[in-house]
């Protein structure tokens, strides 16, 4: 699914990723943990193609295709989805309009036929209920005046509608109460299948109680310094990161 080799990237002339390696197979869930400033969010943005994030060395392929030279939207068409840590507002553009435009664009790029508006709206309303958002939110501006939790659930709704191949979730759990966290976990678990992979960037082991990862990686100083199974998350929760950083 995703293969990252020796990835180096900088933001504002500051080197953030310094030789990161990661391989993810279809159907796998990888959790990425690590101290603040280690490059977790940067990894997501570099893969998604955020302007200003400069790759200085290394490679990344998604489904066998080199994505680093692609436009942001081309990566999305290929199946990459990033759930944002801080989703922005787009005033006046209704959620429904945004979702439809986005699904239309992705389907068109993939050579799939467009979904008619009626079935789309029906599907969107179903999903909004699944993520515990009142369908009235579909009529509101994108993230306009949403609470932190509502924004995160809105991201999840977009992810469920777009049916991506690789879902990168950047601290989707931060700022969520237990109920909302369970909603998010339920949504992700329902989406898990043999052809879809997840990267969960998180600070807390708590999320992993609900979404069981296949692998846990520790990102520090721009590299993955330790990988393990879900028990590694528990160990980190108990011991912190310092022992790993010292060892690295």
């Amino acid at each position: 699914m995703l293969k990252i080799d020796n990835l180096h990237a900088r933001v504002d002339d500051k080197d953030i990723l310094k030789g990161l390696n990661l391989a993810i197979k279809p159907g796998e869930v990888h959790a990425i943990m690590g101290p603040n400033g280690s490059g977790k969010s940067t990894l997501g943005h570099v893969l998604a193609g955020r302007p200003g994030y400069q790759v200085t060395a290394g490679s990344a392929t998604l489904l066998g295709q080199d994505i680093l030279d692609m436009d942001t939207e081309e990566r999305a068409h290929l199946g990459l989805f990033l759930a944002y840590q801080y989703p922005v507002e787009i005033p006046g553009v209704s959620n429904m309009e945004f979702l439809k435009a986005s699904v239309d664009a992705v389907r068109e790029a993939r050579g799939q036929e467009a979904i008619d508006s009626v079935s789309f709206m029906k599907r969107a309303r179903e999903i909004s209920r699944e993520v515990d958002l009142d369908p009235a939110f579909l009529k509101r501006g994108v993230n306009e005046g949403f609470s932190g939790g509502e924004k995160k659930r809105n991201e999840l709704m977009q992810m469920m509608l777009l049916e991506p191949k690789l879902c990168i979730m950047d601290e989707t759990d931060s700022g969520l109460d237990i109920d909302a966290l369970q909603v998010v976990a339920k949504g992700v678990n329902a989406m898990r299948n043999e052809e879809r992979s997840f990267v969960l960037v998180t600070h807390y082991q708590r999320l992993l109680n609900y979404i069981e990862p296949d692998y846990v990686h520790v990102l520090a100083g721009g590299r993955i310094i330790k990988s393990g199974d879900k028990s590694l998350a528990l160990e980190l929760e108990a011991k912190g990161y310092a022992w790993l950083e010292d060892a690295a």
């Binding site: 436009d71 942001t72 939207e73 944002y84 922005v88 787009i90 664009a105 790029a109």
Partner: peptide, 27 residues
């Protein structure tokens, strides 16, 4: 904002479509 455009593009919209959608929302 660049962040608005980035969000739209990450969701598969090209820059032109994104700008016109944001402007239409504004109006």
């Amino acid at each position: 904002s660049d962040d608005q455009l980035y969000l739209c593009q990450q969701r598969g919209l090209d820059a032109e479509k994104a700008v016109s959608m944001i402007v239409n929302g504004f109006c």
